[in-house]
Design a protein around this nucleic acid. Structure first.
Lengths: 338, 338
DNA sequence: CTGAAAGCGCTTACAG
DNA sequence: CTGAAAGCGCTTACAG
């Protein structure tokens, strides 16, 4: 592939210096808003810059000053609205803080994750916010640390060592959801959807805990792992309905799974919330207006993204500080599906 | 705000040159995979680089060579899965072509759009892919052109002049959807949701055309504009049901609107597809597993993003070529809601 | 096949 | 308060 053309970059600091009759240093100083330059001079410089159509070359500036105002964000699954909401919160907070974001999507592909991380490293970024792909080795933490790039990991924990992390209380949240189902009189409750992994185990633990608290025996046959997509959940729900007629409720891995369950239920002529209870997890925007509206566990996805941004910004400004975590407190939100 | 720290950048091309006993030029050449350098020398250089933990500073290289491998993508509404799917297709194609993407989200805020565009301009980007905010002035086209930055606009047209554009046949698509409703025997059909703007007018025109083709009089009272969100559509549907009991079907502005309608219908005890017909537009992933699955118009959102990427890449490699357009051909996909 | 030199657009001590 | 000079990490003619 040929080298791409790039925008004309005719006018530089040198040109405006000449036009304003000052030195490059003076122009640089006024561009940075320095108070060292007399008002009158500064005004003359700004006028010249305006007239010439000068545009600041931030990358050149960052190269010289060895600074960076860009942050890499890597997301594993943007097709799940939960991650889209996290991304929006994160991006908003980052640009408000004066950063610009490199965004890369990995589609749960480990190789692509390695590739985009390597590419970002070459870009002199100030930090990385990562929703790791399923199966990401813990060693990635050490690798990125060795690069000297601040990192915050989001949603999926990456081992037990200390690192900046923004996630939610998965166990507590699903325990809440399951306990609600039990309180409504359900005794045969499934745990539905999701792929095995750290988050799955935490949520499953919440399900088990709620059962145990109610004196209900845990039955491995009632946990139905499946792709955490609408389609995976839809198919899985159909199969469950056929093979486990006694089940009357499901604590779902997340809202997407719950939506798939709603769809399958409807297909079978079952009314969610009446004939079969379903609880979601996340409380994505869509949950408020599904058919029927979804009872779920709110972990405030957007706020989670903002929290991740805050952690990363703090790490950047205080590299030596101790790692910290944001764990969203789950809240039950009851609508019509359970 | 203090200047953010940046990663340690200890080792440079200079260091590896010293370690390998060659000049900087030679190192640069082998890094670029030039065939000018003897294999043995190249290997020695690569070995030294590896040993020293050298990492290429792409931004410095781009500054020197006045090239750019980064593209700015600005999206107006990531909370709509349609745009998320467009973004994913776009990003995938761009990184496959060796680019990295700056992503900014505008939340339909014109001021933020101007701000992120200005920021991206300072970053020496190779191109911009823009889903313009509602109310973006046509003049933006000229402005970006004057910057010398290749631009592709997506989804929402921006005036009548020639420019690279990726969108869909809105009029044809909604005509298809409306005609289907008519074929099913509906005579009192609403056009539901969406905010006035170029896309709205095109889709509304399709609705009118289908009515006219069937000899049904258009009634302005049957077009219900509303925020193109689940919530806006939900509330609007409820109001419509109350005030226009004769309406038995709706051609929706997009899938998100249709989902809101599904929710409202369910709330009223109406069965979508039986008691009231709903047609969507876009065919987002979620449409296949809503409750009930949504009949809609497929414009392949992901492919649209890929097409936008292709247009932009072409513009970058052939700046002088004539502007071109990708207009997705709509296809009816019939599921349960109509 | 490889090296010495200039320079991309900027910042930053250092003088004055 | 402002200018001259060096240099960030790289590339690219130009010699040899």
């Amino acid at each position: 592939m040929s080298k791409p053309a790039s925008p004309a970059r005719a006018v530089t600091i040198h040109d405006v210096a000449a036009a304003a009759g000052v030195s490059k240093s003076t122009v640089s100083l006024v561009l940075q808003g320095s108070t060292l330059i007399r008002d009158e001079t500064a005004e003359r410089v700004r006028e010249a810059a305006r007239k010439l159509g000068y545009v600041y070359n931030r990358r050149a500036a960052e190269l010289r000053s060895n600074s960076s105002r860009t942050i890499g964000v890597v997301i594993n699954d943007l097709m799940n609205p939960f991650f889209a909401e996290v991304l929006v919160g994160l991006e908003r907070k980052l640009v408000d803080a004066g950063y610009i974001v490199f965004m890369a999507h990995t589609s749960e592909d480990l190789r692509r994750q390695e590739q985009v991380l390597a590419t970002m490293r070459e870009q002199n970024i100030a930090g990385i916010a990562l929703c790791p792909v399923l199966g990401t080795p813990q060693a990635l933490l050490k690798t990125v640390k060795s690069w000297g790039i601040p990192l915050v990991v989001m949603v999926r924990p990456l081992g037990t060592s200390a690192y900046d992390y923004a996630g939610s209380d998965n166990e507590g949240g699903v325990a809440l959801a399951t306990a609600h189902l039990i309180a409504r009189g359900h005794r045969h409750i499934a745990f539905l959807g999701g792929r095995r992994g750290p988050v799955f185990e935490q949520r499953l633990a919440g399900y088990k805990r709620a059962l145990a608290d109610a004196g209900i025996a845990f039955d491995e046959a009632r946990v139905f792992a499946a792709d955490p997509t609408r389609e995976g959940a839809h198919d899985c729900t159909l199969a469950m309905l056929d093979s486990h007629a006694e089940v009357t409720a499901a604590a779902c891995y997340n809202d997407l799974v719950a939506f798939g369950a709603l769809s399958a239920l409807g297909e079978r002529g079952l009314r969610p919330g009446k004939d079969f209870a379903v609880m979601g997890f996340d409380n994505v925007l869509a949950a408020a207006h599904s058919n029927p509206p979804l009872s779920t566990v709110d972990v405030r996805p957007g706020a989670l993204g903002e929290a991740a941004a805050a952690l990363l910004l703090h790490r950047i400004s205080a590299p030596g500080s101790a790692p910290s975590r944001y764990i969203a407190t789950p809240h039950l939100v009851l609508r019509q599906s359970a």
